[in-house]
């Protein structure tokens, strides 16, 4: 069993490494992890040091990406902002995945009215223009990073729930589940030992794409002024400054957006690559 699992994983890894776009995505994501873990190694300046003599300076040798409206170094702010984006992306997606797993497993496994009630709830949640709801809740609770993570997580789990439910529905009819039941395994054991591990690949793919989505939502919120609050740097709130100074300082608009684009693209490519490698039959679809 253990040997079989290892070789399956090795096959998966080999297929993943053959996919050049997926490798590119993985490189981007790993690089971001390093930047987020050691921001001071990449930022030459203190991200919150204000210098009134250097307001809105275009890119130069000392400030490769220019300075903002308070004379702060844009590159340093972006490097520190990377950490915030990654944290929000991961925690929010973690919350969403956890809820989705629980709801999907329960609905799929127990079926009948439990399934009916939970799936109607999912339908209701899907009807909200979720960005409206996120906006309302953050504005009311106050835009702390914890609140942002929680609200994004609480409004984005429905896709995961549907996915897990569908997987569970098909897995619970398989022979190995019947075999486990015949051996006297209880519901919980079947769910955690037999169904959950087999549903992990699609969830991993969903979560990888989910991190990208959460980063996008966080940056939109910060851009609108109700996400990460200055002086804490985030890619979204640097872009707000870019919009306010749109006539004089293009570098404030161009670079942070580029960082978001590359990050999100990295996660998408990695997620797609994992999907293709986990289920080669679906490749190119």
């Amino acid at each position: 069993m253990a040997a079989g699992a290892t070789s399956m994983f090795r096959d998966f890894l080999r297929r993943l490494l053959k996919n050049r776009l997926a490798v590119a995505g993985a490189v981007v994501v790993s690089f971001l992890f390093v930047v987020a873990a050691y921001p001071s190694a990449f930022a030459r300046h203190d991200p919150s040091r204000i210098d009134v003599r250097k307001i809105l300076e275009p890119p130069s040798a000392d400030h490769p990406l220019g300075t903002d409206e308070l004379g702060r170094d844009v590159l340093s702010r972006m490097v520190h902002g990377a950490r915030i984006s990654m944290e929000v992306g991961f925690v929010a997606t973690g919350i969403a995945t956890a809820i989705g797993l629980v709801v999907g497993l329960i609905a799929g496994f127990y079926g009948r009215w439990v399934d009916g009630v939970l799936m109607r709830f999912v339908d209701i949640m899907l009807c909200f223009p979720s960005f409206f709801l996120i906006l309302a809740v953050i504005a009311f609770l106050g835009p702390s990073i914890i609140n942002i993570m929680a609200v994004i997580g609480l409004t984005s789990w429905m896709g995961a729930a549907r996915l897990v439910r569908a997987e569970t529905l098909s897995l619970k009819e398989r022979d190995f589940v019947s075999a486990a039941r015949a051996q006297g395994a209880g519901n919980l054991r079947i769910i955690f030992r037999h169904i959950l591990p087999n549903a992990l690949a699609p969830i991993l793919v969903w979560a990888t794409l989910g991190v990208a989505g959460a980063i996008l939502v966080e940056s939109s919120l910060s851009f609108l002024g109700i996400g990460v609050q200055p002086p804490t740097p985030s890619w979204g709130n640097i872009l707000t400054a870019g919009k306010d100074n749109i006539e004089f300082a293009w570098w404030l608009s161009v670079y942070p957006g580029l960082a978001i684009l590359v990050t999100v693209l990295g996660y998408y490519l990695l997620g797609e690559g994992i999907q293709d490698a986990a289920d080669p039959r679906l490749k190119g679809r």
Partner: peptide
């Protein structure tokens, strides 16, 4: 894929800079 990843508000800013400013 690039289109998926572009934050729309950033695209808006870039277009504003190019065509507007």
């Amino acid at each position: 894929f690039t289109g998926f990843a572009v934050p729309t508000f950033w695209l808006a800013l870039l277009l504003m800079i190019l065509f507007g400013v």
